[in-house]
Design a protein around this nucleic acid. Sequence first.
DNA 1: GTATTTATTTTGATTAGTCAAAGTATGCTG
DNA 2: CAGCATACTTTGACTAATCAAAATAAATAC
Lengths: 218, 218
Amino acid sequence: MATSTVENYLKTILLRTEGPDHMVPMGVLAEALDVVPGTVTTMVKSLAEQGLLDHQARQGVRLTDSGRRLALEVLRKHRLVETFLVRTLKMDWTEVHEEAEALEHAVSERVLARIDEFLGHPATDPHGDPIPDANGHLADDAEAATLLDCALNKPLRVTRITDQSTDFLAFVQKTGLKPGTRLRVLRREPASGVLHCEVRAGGEIALGLPEAAKIAVS
Amino acid sequence: MATSTVENYLKTILLRTEGPDHMVPMGVLAEALDVVPGTVTTMVKSLAEQGLLDHQARQGVRLTDSGRRLALEVLRKHRLVETFLVRTLKMDWTEVHEEAEALEHAVSERVLARIDEFLGHPATDPHGDPIPDANGHLADDAEAATLLDCALNKPLRVTRITDQSTDFLAFVQKTGLKPGTRLRVLRREPASGVLHCEVRAGGEIALGLPEAAKIAVS
DNA sequence: GTATTTATTTTGATTAGTCAAAGTATGCTG
DNA sequence: CAGCATACTTTGACTAATCAAAATAAATAC
């Protein structure tokens, strides 16, 4: 079995990979994993020797097939556990990310299968993120529209929040922007960097453009 | 937070402590934790420096109050998780011990509180072992009777199986001796080392005396 | 009461993961 | 294209946890 450190490196690389041939830079990993860059270099070399990823010096890393398989397993555990914590144990969806961060490394395949079954094979977690299936197949993002690039004044529904930070989720929770909420974008003001939208059964909300990009809609 | 290694040492010491002033010998710990004796000596010294236990050279170890508190927290997590896996996820009670062994180190207080609530504050786990309460109070064993020292021919009920090994639990499962089962002891044969008992709604079972001592009854 | 066995401790080495700080490419800027 | 900033790698050192094997103490045998 891989250590939780290895699992975290692989999962992070998977989540930071931007396209089929994209290489994730070392700095991004160091930042995301909260270690110094030298540590990432050392670790990545050892993972490359184990055949879990390809490392091009001063370029970055890319998962191999076996690395990707492992990363998807970890991601599946993470997202199923999050869903379980919210749906079954009634925990607050804004705080389950940290819990799942620890549990994803301790949940066996056997337990995971029971959780999946118990939940009725859910397709997405409480943030709207897709859950990889048991064969490691992840539903395509298909670059869903976000508040940044959708049509104005069209009725929309929030499908996904792509930022797990407690602060952002607290804001989302307070303003009611969580997955499922219906809303429409009133106007964008690139000059001031602010976007205004109207939440159905709520008021008008202003948010920054980078923040708007973290809210996917359909 | 304590590492899982530390938690395992403390939990093991708690479970191997036989009385108020009993000191657990190093060899017992080495055996239980599956490490060489030298490792235990080293580790125990460091735990003693952290104030989690007292170590008398060539005598053994005893938990301090803070060590005991921590050990009870871990034991509480272990037993609540076992109960949860059996009651909620419908897992086989003979195989949840290993799963809980991993999960007990990853479950936060917050998650544990939800599990406890969800289960309705259970008093015992699926093996009949008492679950410490949230304040670290463990119901007294009170040296319950076992098949070895109970009255003959009296109708009894199995309350607890005090051996978590897969093999023994498989035997218990197969013969139906699990907690709750009604039975009576027919006879003991010290010479042959065999004990015979009759399971209500089952047949007659023969088992060795050391094995009989692992089945508590009331 | 010396000798032997058994339990424990010590010593020296190893592995995983990490940091600090120095060194080396890469690429941008003027 | 020279100079510099930035990103990355290397080096040496550290901690936690472990083992193998040698040293020591205690208990038991005879």
